[in-house]
């Protein structure tokens, strides 16, 4: 029999419910505890809670007692050229150990280089060398955290001449080789496909949809490139756009009901506004779940 440490994935993690959730924002801590809204789950950015103590942990502890939790990393730099930052992985492991989230996800992007942290999700070239590196990094994360992670498809504004494969093929290879799951960010699909002249539905259908375990929805800002073509910015600063809701409905037809997060990180409105958006997402999910909803009642 192998020692437990050599098979860290032995510990079972419950999964997020196929309901709508929202990002947890400090502005809403008290309102959430006071009003106990009926919401499927909350998601936090891991790095915001990598502090020793204080109000963030105080409120997260109490909110986590009442709701399922998704931890979403924004600073691991999985697409980075250097090795993963083991100190960051240690902080992440401690956070996951403390809060036991139902889900952990990160991005197909890089954010650190040469010891500097750029605080943005920067794009990678889709070539053989990057593929090997990203797979090694995802495998290291899963080994260190003792669980399967979800990888999120990126929102990008440029592409690399060095790329030798398409983004969906690249993601498919990472999922297949590393065994990670996929966080399908429908807003990112819409943003990237608009920015690179692709068909968003074709893009989604080309992804390894069996691996999808969560969906992200968010708002974008509209700018234009030097030729006047629309250049969408993944701002997380606006309500989910109608085109993204429509794309989301198609995606759900293909992947089935999924935990669905409304992401909002800028121009954050009052809690009821986000809850109303989440209810809209939940009504879409309920249309797919007539049987499950009935059996839940009985």
């Amino acid at each position: 029999m192998q020692p437990a440490a050599s098979r860290p994935s032995a510990r079972p993690h419950r999964s997020l419910p196929a309901r709508a959730g929202i990002g947890l924002k400090p502005e809403h801590f008290r309102a959430i505890l006071d009003t106990a809204p009926d919401i499927g789950f909350f998601e936090i950015h891991a790095e915001n809670y990598m502090v020793d103590g204080g109000p963030f942990h105080h409120y997260l502890t109490r909110i986590r007692e009442r709701y399922p939790l998704s931890i979403h990393g924004v600073g691991l730099s999985i697409g980075g050229e250097g090795p993963l930052d083991e100190a960051h992985l240690d902080r992440l492991a401690a956070l996951l150990d403390r809060y036991q989230p139902e889900s952990f996800s990160e991005h197909l992007a890089w954010s650190s280089h040469g010891g500097n942290f750029y605080n943005d999700l920067l794009p990678v070239a889709y070539d053989a060398a990057t593929l090997v590196r990203v797979c090694e990094h995802v495998e290291r994360v899963q080994e260190r955290l003792g669980r399967r992670m979800l990888l999120e498809n990126p929102a990008t504004y440029i592409e690399f001449a060095a790329s030798t494969m398409g983004e969906t093929d690249f993601i498919g290879e990472v999922v297949q080789r590393s065994g990670c799951g996929l966080l399908l960010d429908v807003n990112n699909v819409h943003v990237s496909c608009t920015n690179h002249g692709r068909d968003a539905r074709d893009y989604i259908r080309a992804l390894p949809l069996d691996a999808v375990a969560q969906i992200h929805l968010a708002g974008f800002a509209v700018e234009s490139d030097s030729l006047g073509a629309p250049l969408l910015i993944d701002s997380h600063g606006a309500p989910v756009a109608e085109e993204v809701w429509q794309l989301h409905c198609h995606a759900l037809d293909w992947v089935g009901p999924m935990p669905t997060l409304i992401e909002r990180d800028n121009d954050i409105p009052a809690l009821p506004v986000l809850l109303a958006e989440a209810r809209h997402a939940e009504r879409i999910l309920e249309r797919l779940l007539p049987v499950a909803a009935e059996s839940a009642v009985s």
């Binding site: 504004y157 440029i158 592409e159 692709r198 490139d225 030729l227």
Partner: peptide, 20 residues
């Protein structure tokens, strides 16, 4: 080494990252 699908200026699009 940056490209764009429609031949628009990569520098302008790269500016989104710099601004972010």
């Amino acid at each position: 080494g940056l490209t764009t699908w429609n031949g628009s200026a990569p520098a302008q699009r790269f500016g989104v990252y710099r601004n972010n």
